[in-house]
């Protein structure tokens, strides 16, 4: 009895003494430190193929790290500007994909006929890797920037369509029955029942879509060139600035995470409380 009592007291004390910051921030920091140390140990030899973390810091400190927004003209710009350029393309491509994808998804979801007609097509197209579209779009659009945006669009649209379709098809029969019994008009059904009911699915699609677009933009820019994080990486590789590549990868990762969380945040504000989970 006493043992039990003292233990429970101890654990509660421990729980109080450890605030959320230490609980959730310390472990990843420790993990990062360990990885950095291992990385440093492996690549510290004179004939290592890749730079160690210390070398990376030394080589990129000035000006890439301390000034992300320098602009020396051409493609020689700070990483912040490079990423903004890429984000700009993603914004345009993804927005188009969202608008077209949701509209098409609703159409396909409402009409079983359209669903039967288009679904096999979608299933085939969605498996085409993003970069496979690039030559086609370059040939069609003749310009690198719209082509990159098209690749974003075509990459992001499939999960948005498919999830929206499912969302519309999954409107609970109860809500449909209510609409039938009340003889709700078309627009009212759309705004009061269809859309709110499909919103969680739509956001799932958007979240997958934004992740895929960010994956695709880096690859597309490597091929199309110009200002952008993808070409920055490719350029750095061609000039053997390996440290810059590593730094850019860190940036890409962090931005991808932020984008994902941003969509999730918007979803949490838009999706009705009862629809979550």
């Amino acid at each position: 009895m006493t043992v039990l009592g003292s233990r429970s007291k101890k654990s509660s004390k421990l729980g109080k003494a450890m605030p959320a910051v230490t609980k959730y921030v310390v472990p990843p920091l420790v993990a990062i430190a360990v990885i950095l140390v291992i990385w440093q140990l492996i690549f510290s030899g004179p004939d290592a193929n890749l730079p160690g973390p210390i070398t990376v810091l030394q080589e990129t400190w000035d000006p890439l790290i301390i000034d992300p927004f320098f602009d020396y003209g051409g493609t020689n710009k700070g990483l912040g500007l490079q990423i903004l350029a890429s984000l700009g393309r993603v914004a345009i491509g993804f927005s188009l994909a969202a608008i077209v994808g949701i509209a098409l998804g609703i159409l396909v979801g409402i009409s079983p006929f359209v669903y039967r007609a288009l679904d096999p097509l979608f299933q085939v197209l969605r498996t085409v890797p993003p970069l496979a579209w690039l030559p086609l779009s370059l040939a069609a659009l003749q310009q690198s920037d719209p082509s990159a945006i098209f690749v974003i669009f075509i990459t992001a649209i499939w999960p948005i369509i498919i999830n929206t379709t499912v969302g519309v098809q999954q409107i609970p029969q109860d809500y449909r029955n209510v609409a039938k019994v009340l003889r709700l008009s078309g627009p009212k059904f759309f705004w009061k029942i269809l859309l709110p009911s499909a919103v969680p699915y739509i956001f799932t699609g958007l979240r997958i879509g934004i992740g895929l677009s960010w994956l695709a933009i880096v690859a597309a820019e490597m091929l199309t060139g110009g200002v952008g994080i993808g070409f920055f990486i490719w350029d750095a590789y061609n000039s053997s600035r390996l440290s810059e590549i590593i730094l850019a990868l860190v940036y890409v990762g962090i931005v991808g995470l932020i984008l994902d969380r941003l969509v999730a945040f918007v979803a949490s504000k838009v999706v009705p409380e009862e629809q979550k989970g």
């Binding site: 109860d174 809500y175 029955n177 209510v178 009061k192 029942i193 709110p196 009705p272 409380e273 009862e274 629809q275």
Partner: peptide, 9 residues
Amino acid sequence: FQNYSLLPW
């Protein structure tokens, strides 16, 4: 309806 069928939003 048995399960109320209110619109949750």
